[in-house]
C-alpha cells in the first residue's frame, strides 16, 4: 500500500513542477500560436543557472531561483526581439524550422560552455533531507519545496494575468490580436512579454528541478515533449488546464510504481516480467498521441 501512496504523492508533486515547465509554453502558444521547440532548452539553461549560482556564491541552490527568473526573462525577451519576431510572418514550416534552430543553438552553446557531463546539486539546505508523512510515505524535501514553490509561481502568474493591467492586455492579445491592436494594445510588446514570462517560468522550473535531477546539455528535449503533452492535455493556451494536466502527467510518469504495486498485490507474474520502468516516458508520449486523436481540445475541454 505504501508503494501506491508514495507513487501517487510523488506523481502529484513532480506533476506540479512539470506544470510550471509547461506554463510558459502554453502562454506563448496562447498569445501567438507558435510552438517553441526550444522550450526544454530554456529549462536546461534554468537548471544550469540554478546550479552555477549556487556553485559560484556558495549559497543554497534554492536562492538561484530569482537569478534564474531574471535570466529566463531576459533570454525570452531577447529571443523574441532578436529572432522569433521574424518567424511570425512566415508559414508554420518556418516557425518549426526556426525554433529547431534555436533549440540546436542553445543546446550546443550549453555544451560549449558547460561540457557534456551530468551535473547535479549535492549540497544545500534541503538536499538529502526528507519529510515523513506517515503511512510510510517519505518525500524528499527538495521535491516538496519545488512543488510548493511552483504552486507559488503559478499563483503569481495567475495574478499577473488576471489582476493587472498588463496581464489583461496580454490576455486580450491572446484572445484576438487584431482587436487588441485596434484597442491600442502594443501587441508586439505583448508578444515579447509572453516570451519573457514564458522564459522566466520555465527557468524557475529548471532551477527547482535541478535540486533533484541532474543536468546535461541534452536534457531539454525530454522536457519539451513532456511540456507538449501537458499543454495538449490541458488545452493549448489554457493556464489552469496546464496545472491540472501537469499533475495528470506527473501521475502518468509514476505508472511504473503503481504497476509494481498491482503486480505485488495480485502476485501476477506476467506483470512483474514487464520492464515497465523502461516505459516511464513512453506513457507520456502515448498519452499525447491518444489525447490529440481522441480529444484535440484537451482533456479538460478548455478552449484557447
Amino acid at each position: 500500500m505504501d508503494i501506491l501512496v508514495s507513487s501517487v504523492v510523488a506523481g502529484v508533486l513532480i506533476g506540479m513542477v512539470l506544470a510550471l515547465v509547461a506554463l510558459g509554453l502554453t502562454i506563448i502558444f496562447g498569445v501567438m500560436d507558435i510552438v517553441n521547440f526550444a522550450h526544454g532548452e530554456f529549462l536546461m539553461l534554468g537548471m544550469y543557472t540554478g546550479l552555477l549560482t549556487a556553485d559560484a556564491t556558495g549559497m543554497d541552490p534554492l536562492l538561484g531561483i530569482p537569478v534564474a527568473a531574471v535570466v529566463g526573462y531576459l533570454l525570452g525577451i531577447a529571443c523574441y526581439w532578436g529572432f522569433i519576431r521574424f518567424l511570425l510572418r512566415g508559414p508554420m514550416v518556418a516557425q518549426l524550422l526556426g525554433t529547431f534552430g534555436l533549440m540546436l543553438l542553445l543546446r550546443n552553446l550549453a555544451l560549449l560552455l558547460f561540457g557534456s557531463e551530468d551535473r547535479g546539486v549535492n549540497a544545500g539546505l534541503l538536499v538529502g533531507k526528507s519529510v515523513a508523512f506517515g503511512m510510510g510515505v517519505i518525500v524528499p524535501a527538495t521535491k516538496l519545496a519545488a512543488a510548493a514553490l511552483s504552486l507559488v509561481s503559478f499563483a503569481a502568474v495567475w495574478l499577473l494575468m488576471n489582476r493587472t493591467r498588463v496581464g489583461k492586455a496580454l490576455t486580450a492579445t491572446a484572445l484576438n490580436a487584431q482587436a487588441a491592436r485596434y484597442m491600442g494594445i502594443p501587441t508586439e510588446r505583448m508578444n515579447a512579454l509572453a516570451w519573457g514570462i514564458g522564459g522566466a517560468t520555465v527557468t524557475v522550473a529548471g532551477a527547482l528541478i535541478v535540486n533533484f535531477w541532474s543536468v546535461n546539455p541534452y536534457v531539454g528535449l525530454l522536457f519539451t515533449m513532456i511540456a507538449f503533452t501537458i499543454v495538449a492535455l490541458g488545452g493549448f493556451g489554457s493556464v489552469p488546464g496546464a496545472l491540472a494536466a501537469g499533475i495528470v502527467v506527473g501521475l502518468l510518469m509514476e505508472i511504473p510504481g503503481i504497476w509494481d504495486f498491482v503486480a505485488y498485490a495480485t502476485e501476477w507474474d506476467w506483470m512483474m516480467d514487464v520492464p515497465v520502468t523502461s516505459f516511464k516516458y513512453t506513457f507520456v508520449y502515448l498519452a499525447y498521441f491518444v489525447i490529440m486523436v481522441v480529444r484535440p481540445r484537451g482533456l479538460f475541454g478548455w478552449k484557447h
Binding site: 518556418a94 524550422l97 526556426g98 534552430g101 540546436l104 543546446r107 560549449l112 561540457g115
Partner: peptide, 22 residues
C-alpha cells in the same frame, strides 16, 4: 574547447534561413 561549435554554426544557418526565406 570547441565542442559543439559545428552545431552552433549549423543552428545559426538554419535560423537565418527560416527567418529570411521560409
Amino acid at each position: 574547447g570547441l565542442v559543439g561549435m559545428d552545431l552552433i554554426l549549423y543552428a545559426l544557418i538554419i535560423m537565418v534561413v527560416s527567418a529570411v526565406e521560409p
